Simulated assay, not measured.
Amino acid sequence: MPAIKILLEITKNLHNHVSPGLPKENRESYIERLNELLEQRQVAMNQLPSSYSAEEQRVGQMIIKLNESIDPLLARQFEEIKHNLTIMKKKKVKNNQYANPYQTLSGDGMYFDKKK
């Protein structure tokens, strides 16, 4: 099978994987599979020939159209993951402050009067 056909199949698999959106559970396995598909696609892209026939150019246009629909989905999922991580970090800080509320206070007890 030519490299362009392999690339098309991998791109279709990637599109089918990304289209439903980011799952609420089993995110780790979802992200692992996503990374596998992206790595396979990169390997297939590195094996592409330098010149293409008319059929290969047609398949390449199909790959480009699929990729144009994949990119926004991946960007949206990346932003959602980044947002979730930010929320988790804030929750962690708040939980630590709740568990030990006096941890961040200065221990010297000094007061500086601003009046002269």
Rank of each mutant, 00 (worst) to 15 (best):
Leu48Asp: 03
Met62Pro: 09
Ser50Ile: 10
Leu22Ala: 00
Leu22Ser: 00
Ile31Ser: 15
Ser69Trp: 08
Gln61Asn: 09
Ser69His: 14
Glu55Met: 02
Lys24His: 11
Leu34Val: 00
Val43Lys: 15
Glu25Thr: 15
Ile31His: 02
Ile64Ala: 14
Leu48Met: 09
Ser69Pro: 08
Ser69Asn: 08
Leu66Ala: 01
Ile63Met: 07
Met62Gln: 14
Ser53Asp: 05
Gln61Met: 04
Ala54Tyr: 00
Lys24Arg: 11
Leu22Arg: 00
Met45Lys: 14
Arg27Ser: 06
Glu36Asp: 13
Glu36Val: 07
Glu25Met: 12
Arg27Phe: 04
Gly21Thr: 08
Gln42Val: 01
Arg27Asn: 08
Glu36Pro: 03
Arg41Gly: 12
Glu55Phe: 09
Ser29Arg: 12
Gln42Phe: 05
Arg33Pro: 05
Asp71Ala: 11
Ser69Ile: 14
Gln40Thr: 05
Val43Asp: 12
Tyr30Asn: 08
Gln47Val: 06
Tyr52Ile: 03
Asn26Thr: 07
Leu48Ala: 11
Glu68Cys: 04
Asp71Gly: 00
Glu68Gly: 10
Ser50Cys: 03
Val43Leu: 15
Ile70Asn: 02
Pro23Asp: 06
Glu28Met: 07
Leu37Tyr: 00
Glu25Ser: 14
Asn35Gly: 12
Glu39Val: 05
Arg58Thr: 14
Pro72Gly: 11
Ala44His: 15
Glu36Met: 07
Leu38Ile: 02
Ile70Ser: 06
Gln57Ile: 06
Glu25Lys: 13
Glu56Pro: 04
Gln42Asn: 12
Pro20Cys: 04
Val43Ile: 12
Pro72Val: 01
Arg27Ala: 01
Gln61Gly: 11
Leu38Asn: 05
Lys24Met: 08
Arg58Ser: 09
Arg27Gln: 06
Ile70His: 11
Gln42Lys: 12
Gln57Arg: 07
Gln61Phe: 01
Asn67Phe: 06
Gln40Trp: 10
Gly21Ser: 07
Pro20Val: 06
Ser50Trp: 02
Leu38Lys: 08
Ile64Lys: 14
Ser19Ile: 13
